[in-house]
């Protein structure tokens, strides 16, 4: 481990014709719940994809719990879970089969994986559907199945891209509680969201990304100070910093 960081990003740069991420620095500690906010096209998903090891940066270093994502990707991925904005799910597998596959990918011991899968499906209200193929599921049910997949190997670092899309109020509250308890147990969580209330209530720290650069970072008070809108809401701060 490197100075106890869960995530350490230095000078991260990526271009697709134009610069999408420009010398980004980011540090997240274990147990921290970090919300990465930004307007459409700010580079949030690209940042998460590079951290997840799905895309090579043009420049910069990324390390997760001391593992260099570019040089030692398998070790980094072993402690991470990545949840994309569109649920990647095999429609022709049932939730139980999907979790069995995900657990296998992360080499979770089979008996332990079964117990965790049962617990997750029960908690997320999918137990009654555990043997149905996912093809008939609603968007919310698919999202919950994918979330269960992200949690089954008990990752120490969760990368969540719009995790609350499609969830009803009760499910969203449940997922928030699950994520908070993971953070309380020492896991680091980074999520992107366009629902600013969620970020304000859940995150211990918020980063605002715009034009590939981190415009401001900190808790709400720090952001208000940075933006110069003393009593403003997160929405006021966000709009001020991104316009």
């Amino acid at each position: 481990m490197q100075n106890g960081h869960a995530l350490r990003v230095r000078g991260l740069t990526k271009s697709f014709g134009r610069k999408v991420i420009d010398a980004l620095d980011l540090t997240i500690m274990p147990g921290e719940f970090y919300a990465l906010l930004g307007p459409n096209g700010a580079g949030k998903t690209t940042t998460l994809r590079m951290i997840a090891g799905l895309m090579r940066p043009d420049a910069g270093d990324i390390s997760v719990f001391g593992h260099d994502v570019v040089r030692n990707p398998l070790a980094a991925k072993a402690v991470m879970a990545w949840l994309p904005d569109e649920p990647l799910l095999y429609d022709r597998l049932s939730p139980m089969e999907y979790l069995e596959f995900v657990a296998g990918l992360w080499r979770v011991e089979p008996a332990l994986a079964r117990a965790r899968a049962e617990e997750l499906l029960e908690t997320l209200g999918l137990w009654g559907h555990r043997h149905e193929r996912c093809e008939g599921f609603s968007r919310g049910m698919k999202q919950k199945t994918v979330l269960a997949g992200a949690l089954i190997h008990e990752p120490r670092f969760l990368l969540l891209d719009e995790p609350f899309t499609g969830l009803d109020a009760a499910s969203a509250r449940l997922v928030k509680q699950m994520l908070q308890s993971r953070a309380a147990a020492g896991a680091a969580v980074i999520l992107t969201t366009h629902i600013l209330d969620v970020a304000e209530r859940l995150a211990t720290r918020i980063g605002i990304l715009s034009g590939g650069q981190l415009r401001a970072e900190g808790d709400l008070t720090a952001l208000q100070l940075h933006a110069g809108v003393a009593a403003g809401s997160l929405e006021d701060v966000f709009l001020h910093l991104t316009n």
Binding site: R49, A52, G53, L54, L74, A75, K77, A78, M80, A81, W82, P84, L88, Y90, V102, L105, W106, R107
Partner: peptide, 13 residues
């Protein structure tokens, strides 16, 4: 099929 990203995000070679 779109599951390449999903597999690449896992610690499988």
């Amino acid at each position: 099929r779109g599951d390449v990203d999903f597999l690449l995000a896992s610690p499988i070679a």
